[in-house]
Structures are given as C-alpha cells and as structure tokens.
Amino acid sequence: MNFDDAVRLTEILLGFAFAQQSIEHFTRFANERHLFIPRFVLAILLMIGFQTTWVAILLFLLGLAMLHRFQGPYNGGSDRMSLLILFCLCLVYIAPTQRWQEMAFGYLALQLVFSYFFSGWVKIINPEWRSGRALCDVFQFSTYPVSESLRQWSKSSRILFVMAWGVMIFELIFPLLLLSRISLIIALIIAASFHFANACLFGLNRFFWIWIAAYPSILWFQSRFIMVG
C-alpha cells in the first residue's frame, strides 16, 4: 500500500469511527451535543476528503475539548487511540517534507505494534494471567461482561486457560508477523476478530472501529520499511 492510499484509507476509517461514536451522543445531554454534532459533521468531511488538513486539526482541537469536558477519556483506550491517530494525521499534513510525513505515519504504525506487544508483555509477566486465573476473573467479577450468562464462562477454566495463552502468544509475536505480507494480513484479520470478540462479549465496540482505522499505517509501514526489495 502506498503512502497516499494509506493516509486516505485512514481518513475514511477514522471518519467512520468518529461518526459512529458521535451519533451515540446525539440523544444525550445538551453540553455533549455541542461537541458531538460538530464532530459528526467534521467526521463526514474527513471521510469524503474535504479540506482534510483543517478538518483533522479541528477534530484534534475537539478531542482536547472532550478531554476537558470529561476530565479524561470518555472511553479509555479507544479515545486515546483516536487522539493518537488524529495527532499523527495532523503531523503528516503539516510536516514540511515527505521524510517527516513518513516519520509521523510510521510512529502510528509502531504504536499499533506496541499496542499488541506490550499488552501481551504485561500479561505474560503476571502469574495470574499465566495460570488462566486472570481471564476467569474478567468473566467472574469484572464490569466487562455484557450479560449475566457470560459470567458462567468463568467456570470453564481450561478453555479460558487456552484462550489466555492464545491471546498472550498472539500479542507477543505480533511484531514478527510483519516479516511477510501474508503473515501480516493474517495477523490483522486475527487481531480484528479479537477486537470483534471483545466488542461482542464486553461491549467495547469503539475499540474495534478505531483499531482498524490504524491498520492502513502498518500495511504501508511494512511495504515501505520491511519488504524493501
């Protein structure tokens, strides 16, 4: 994937994710609508590619206003990834040379790799994750399961043990999967499925849409820096 196509695809996916998030706030409080109706309009403009530099800068400023309004992210990691993608896009637009543009977009790609690798690392150094106990706890008493019936999964300790190790190994080997095009594509399909499962089981739908918005950066990064020649 070339640089321009990757940036354009990121704009479209990011615009869609922001539009989806923003609509959810339309029926809420007036002081939220003041932020999310303009955000929705800007997200549509970003998707259609209208004045993307100014639109991304305005979206970033709105992101700062949201941080102030909610005294932090509204939805933790997904809001942080949103700001990270916007931050990198803004740097791409204002960078004076192609080299600096690539560094800004490459930073997003590296952070995407880190988002999997370090999530795996912090789990595998925890004995509770290695024994499968931590994943049982997620289902047994954390706030995440979307229904009471899912709490029953905590009793399937063998299955959760296998799932925990599957997640940890996948997250840890993610950087190695950049070494070939086919392994990266398979890795991204598995990763997107993982986010989809998290969205279904834990209600984390915003993570799914925003993480896939960062995928074009890694596809470009691989073809630019790893698959040279």
Binding site: L64, L67, H68, Q71, G72, P73, G77, D79, R80, M81, L83, L84, F87, Q111, F114, S115, F117, F118, S119, V122, K123, N126, E128, A134, D137, V138, F141, S142, T143
Partner: peptide, 24 residues
C-alpha cells in the same frame, strides 16, 4: 492540565488488562 491528559494518548503505555483489579 489538558497536556497532562493528552500525553498518555500520544505516548501510550498500552497496559490493557495487565491486572484484574477489584471491580466497582
């Protein structure tokens, strides 16, 4: 204050589910 809130987004630590803490 805003910069303090922004910094974890542009330099993230990515520690998802590292510890399953007591749940409110």
């Amino acid at each position: 204050h805003i910069l303090k809130l922004l910094l974890p987004a542009v330099i993230p630590s990515w520690r998802f589910f590292d510890v399953i803490a007591p749940s409110p």
